[in-house]
Simulated assay, not measured.
Amino acid sequence: MQTPHSGFFYIQQVAEITELSKQLIRKWEDRYEIIHPTRLDNGYRVYSEQDVNILLTVKSLIEQGHTVKQAATLLKDGIVQPLTEQNAANVDYAAETNLYVRQLLQKGSQCKEAELNQLLHQTYHLFGLKEFLNSVIVPFLKEVGNRWETGEWSEYQEALSSTLVRDFLVQIRRNFQINQDAPLVVGACLPSEHHEVPVHILLLEAMVRGWKTFFIGFSPAPGSIQAIVERLNPKKVILSASTLLPFQHYPTLLEELDEFARKHPETEFYLGGTGSMLYCDDLAPKHLKLTNDINEVFR
């Protein structure tokens, strides 16, 4: 696709670069006034490189746990500067600086399953659970995702690494000693959501804090979350959507879960994940607490 002028992009190109829908780009443009496209004589809007960088920055801030409104405010107030090729390359990602993450990436790149699994065990016992999650697993998975998205890694390399991490985290949860009288937190992906690793990480964080956990699973059938919550009566429920698929496949899902939360005030309901943050920017729930901050869940 040709750009209309050097350094400018049509909205379809911006959508492809940022992996944001054209509708969402227009909404952020109108609601938050963070980007300022130019109209050509033919009526088409074109976006500058600065506009694209701003959108990428907002997306990055959302992935870090900010709402869209908070991200827009940070940019407008000059607290956060838009990413550029220069400063993006200088971001101090743990995957670039952490020796153990680099070793894991090397084993994953070579698809050495046994060595990757052995290294996961070594780093877990070296760091302890909390540091292992925050300093090893989270940056490792982020870099795995980056390499798959850019085409540096094949689908097989990404799947092998992610599956090994998932299985290892499940094993830790099963063997973790916890007081059976501890309060219960239930975690689940939303229907049609298959990215379960973030929920396992959250539940392990909960166990470190002394909570008993129950994982419903990935892509549960519609209504199963409500049924299990009614049976178990947990103190907290953590729901996750890394993609927009749950809301696209089930347009009334958010409304149904929010109404369910209203009817169960004895339980605190939390909804997180990049997909949830993007979708709820326009349809904020009243009874589900929207957050990507584990500390907010377990204050």
Rank of each mutant, 00 (worst) to 15 (best):
M1I: 10
Q2A: 09
Q2E: 15
G7D: 03
F8V: 08
Q12S: 15
Q13E: 14
Q13W: 02
V14I: 09
L20G: 03
S21N: 08
I25N: 07
K27I: 13
W28G: 04
E29H: 07
E29I: 06
E29R: 04
D30N: 15
R31S: 04
Y32E: 02
Y32M: 02
H36R: 14
P37T: 07
G43W: 00
V46Q: 12
Y47K: 07
S48Y: 00
Q50L: 06
D51I: 06
V52R: 11
E63Y: 01
H66K: 08
H66L: 10
H66D: 06
T67V: 01
V68H: 02
K69Y: 04
Q70F: 02
Q70P: 00
Q70T: 14
L74D: 14
L75P: 11
G78S: 03
V80T: 02
Q81I: 14
L83T: 05
L83D: 06
A88V: 00
A88Q: 12
A89R: 12
A94T: 04
A95Q: 03
A95G: 08
Y100V: 04
L105N: 04
K112Q: 15
E113V: 14
H125L: 13
F127N: 11
L129S: 00
I137H: 01
V138C: 07
V138T: 12
P139R: 08
P139H: 02
L141W: 06
L141C: 11
K142A: 14
E143G: 00
E143C: 06
G145S: 07
E149H: 13
E149T: 12
E149F: 01
T150F: 03
E152G: 00
W153P: 08
W153Q: 10
W153H: 10
E155G: 15
A159G: 00
L160M: 15
L160V: 15
S162G: 05
T163F: 10
V165Y: 01
R166E: 06
D167M: 07
L169F: 00
R174P: 00
F176I: 04
Q177C: 05
Q177L: 09
D181F: 01
A182G: 10
P183T: 06
A188N: 09
C189E: 12
P191A: 10
S192K: 10
E193L: 04
V197G: 10
V199Y: 08
E205H: 13
V208N: 07
R209M: 15
W211S: 05
K212N: 15
F214P: 02
F215M: 15
G217R: 08
G223T: 01
E230A: 15
R231S: 14
P234W: 04
K235A: 13
K235P: 01
K236G: 03
V237N: 07
V237S: 02
I238L: 15
S240K: 02
A241T: 02
S242E: 06
S242D: 06
P246N: 09
Q248I: 11
H249Q: 13
P251D: 08
E259K: 13
A261K: 03
K263G: 06
K263P: 00
P265R: 08
E266T: 15
T267C: 14
E268V: 09
F269R: 12
L271F: 11
G275Y: 12
D281H: 08
D282W: 02
A284S: 13
P285N: 12
K286F: 02
H287R: 12
T291Q: 12
D293N: 14
N295L: 09
